[in-house]
Amino acid sequence: MSSARYLYLSLFSLGLVIFAVLLQQTGYRGVSFLPCPLCILQRVGYLGVTIFCFLAVGIAPLRRFFHVLALLSATYGVSVAGRQVWLLSHPETSCGIDPLEVWINQFQLSQGVPWLFKADGLCSAQLPTIFGLQVPEWSLFWFSVLFLILLATLFKKNP
């Protein structure tokens, strides 16, 4: 895959994190979108894709290594987003305060950059849809797209 394509994937993935933070800060249709623990873990997955694709641009000899790490980040994101989509369809399985929330909020990143990494919401909260899908469903879709692109281009030579 070319450097430009890695850069596009990196910027796209970063754009999705920025969109999530904007949604968290401004809300949508008068509803505040507080991130839940699984949302924070998905942000980590998107940031993984962002960082590894960006490193693939800058460090050409290790490009395939960073490609694999970006693919693993997307795989991780698909699994976390898939779990949250499952929780949305089974809200009775989610408890009030998630033990994962306490664990995530104890990390230094959560305390240092709370607007990006602090979990405050419930994983099974039914929030307004955006173009017919809940945010976790969109996240699963975009992680799947990133995964498929990275998988399809894993063994292709650079043009």
Rank of each mutant, 00 (worst) to 15 (best):
K118L: 07
G27S: 10
Q108W: 13
L109E: 15
L87Q: 11
V68P: 10
F52H: 01
V49E: 02
G96Y: 10
G82M: 14
S32V: 06
W103L: 12
R83S: 15
V44M: 04
V44W: 02
I18T: 02
V57L: 06
A56M: 01
I40W: 00
F54C: 03
T26E: 15
V44A: 11
V31K: 02
L69N: 11
T50A: 00
L88T: 06
A119L: 04
I59N: 08
S110K: 03
V113R: 03
V21S: 02
F66G: 01
P35I: 10
V85H: 07
G45C: 03
G45R: 02
Q24D: 13
W103H: 09
G96K: 09
T75S: 15
R29C: 06
G112W: 13
Y76S: 14
T75M: 15
L23C: 05
A119Q: 04
P61L: 08
E92F: 12
W103A: 06
A70W: 03
R63Q: 11
Y76F: 15
F19W: 11
A119T: 09
P99V: 06
A60S: 15
F19C: 09
L87C: 12
Q106C: 04
L87D: 12
L69F: 07
L47E: 09
T93Q: 15
V113N: 04
L41G: 12
T93F: 14
Y28K: 00
I59Q: 12
L22W: 02
V85I: 11
W103D: 05
S94D: 12
P37K: 04
W103S: 09
S32F: 04
G96L: 09
K118C: 03
G58R: 10
Y28N: 05
A81D: 13
S79R: 14
F66H: 06
L71H: 10
L62S: 14
W115I: 04
P37I: 02
I97L: 08
L34D: 09
L55H: 00
V85K: 10
S89P: 06
Y46A: 01
R83I: 15
F52T: 03
F54S: 10
R29G: 02
P91W: 13
G48T: 04
H67G: 05
C39W: 00
A81Y: 07
V102Y: 10
F54H: 06
Q25M: 08
Q84C: 07
V49C: 00
T93E: 15
V102S: 14
A60Y: 01
Q42L: 05
R29F: 08
G48M: 05
S79F: 15
F33V: 13
F19Q: 08
F65I: 10
L100T: 00
L116Q: 03
W115C: 03
